[in-house]
Design a protein around this nucleic acid. Structure first.
Lengths: 182, 182
DNA sequence: AGGTTGGCTAGTGGAAACCATAGCCAGGAC
DNA sequence: GTCCTGGCTATGGTTTCCACTAGCCAACCT
């Protein structure tokens, strides 16, 4: 798994193998390459994450979301506005009989795609061993949810079987074409 | 899926069904019940997350981690110390020939269990459509990684098939025993 | 003994996150 | 009209995050 002539530090049991141009890890401190950081720019605050949680739990209206998250209205308003700008939520008009038109917040597809992140966090949070809490279960069979890391070919992938590469490297560094490796 | 006599707001297409005592969502704003918040207490900062990222990428030594994350040494030192206290990392002595004993940071099992969270975040970050970046692939077949939400019985679970319940409710609210629902 | 290096620690400051309280505004209820 | 209510907005404060700069300390080297 180690690149020939690659990193100064040998691979160990439980790390991700760096391949291609990314094998020179120290060349990539510059910002803009890490998708985790991109994700955290949008949902890196506690308020953003728990507001999305409440939307998943069916919360829609402003005061509902503010109250159930325990956030102040000021923080909830600011964060909801940002989540709409960022495309995770959208405002939808609604009208209860005899009331004026209001807006509620519902998930966009981008927001719904956050589901695995929430599940992964809850699963990891479960390992922290605090008492009680809420867990997610499969409505069909009642057993608890978790996430499984898989590749696009459907293989379950453990940490030692993982490699990292720059997308601009294409597939020329994948193990099937080792001769083209820089 | 809607609880009989349940919440005031009807279920919609893409939310998690609240079951049992948790169906009264407004009774649970108190802190301590949400595993997402527990998780975020430990890895809720950008610095914690990207330090873990670098450990996954094989970083071990202090200056390596500080430099590759782009964090200042002060921030890196503070956060690494906290990650050790929280049990995600541990300090291991090492000695290069002719050098004094130093410590490097390696993942604990708790830290390694964070892997699906990182993958989920990267997968979601990919949807944000920024150029380039690093992606994770299966070393065996070269195809990109993602996470799949599954229940403990191995069923793949989509958002509308998801229910939330309090763990203290046991299984008495699962769909197989609807008569015991309070 | 003095210099160098790796691994921190300390001080300062700005920005962002969060809380608390108070105010505003549109429109149905009266 | 006036009141009330839901949905914000504004102000002010504390805390946390993070950057920058500078300093410290224990070896190892000379």
């Amino acid at each position: 798994m180690t690149q020939p002539g690659g990193p100064t530090r040998p691979d160990t049991d439980a790390v991700i193998a760096l391949t291609g141009r990314f094998a020179d890890r120290d060349a990539w401190q510059a910002e803009g390459w890490c998708r985790i950081e991109h994700a955290l720019e949008l949902i890196g605050t506690r308020s953003a994450m728990i507001l999305m949680r409440e939307v998943y739990y069916g919360g829609r209206r402003f005061d509902e979301l503010a109250r159930r998250t325990g956030l102040t209205e000021a923080v909830a308003a600011k964060r909801l506005k940002q989540l709409v700008v960022d495309g995770l939520l959208q405002r939808q008009p609604y009208q209860e009989p005899g009331k004026r038109t209001r807006y509620e917040y519902v998930s966009t597809e981008l927001g719904r795609d956050l589901f695995p992140v929430l599940v992964a966090l809850m699963q990891w949070g479960d390992r922290l061993g605090r008492e009680g809490g809420v867990e997610l279960v499969h409505a069909g069979c009642g057993s608890p949810l978790g996430v499984v890391v898989e590749c696009a070919n459907g293989h379950e992938v453990a940490l030692p079987d993982t490699a990292a590469r720059l997308v601009t490297d294409g597939n020329d560094t994948d193990p099937h074409n080792p001769q083209s490796d820089g």
